[in-house]
Amino acid sequence: MADETVKQEQKHITLIVKNQVGEEVQFKVKLNTVFEKVFKAYSDKKGVQNTKFLFDGHRIKATDTPADLDMEDGDTIDAMLEQLGGSQRLSQ
């Protein structure tokens, strides 16, 4: 039983991160890798900050793992730029 769990966690899956303009970056991750590492690798590669990552409409947390989110090989993630509509309120 214990051996099986270890095996599961060491299995690699490929995740595809897609941005607004359709550019894709693929990541090979273990099921128990925390997303913090993926986020960092993505911003290093793309040179962007302030990205939020959505899977099935849920914002992925840095502490989540693919196993937490029931991810499978080949699943796609949306990388969206954080943006704020309107202008910031000016102080009076």
């Binding site: 897609k18 941005n19 607004q20 359709g22 099935d56 409409g57 499978e72 080949g74 699943d75 796609t76 949306d78 969206m80």
Partner: peptide, 12 residues
């Protein structure tokens, strides 16, 4: 859908 979906859309 899980393998390839249009950006920003959600369906489940």
């Amino acid at each position: 859908w899980r393998k390839d979906k249009p950006f920003g859309f959600i369906a489940k």
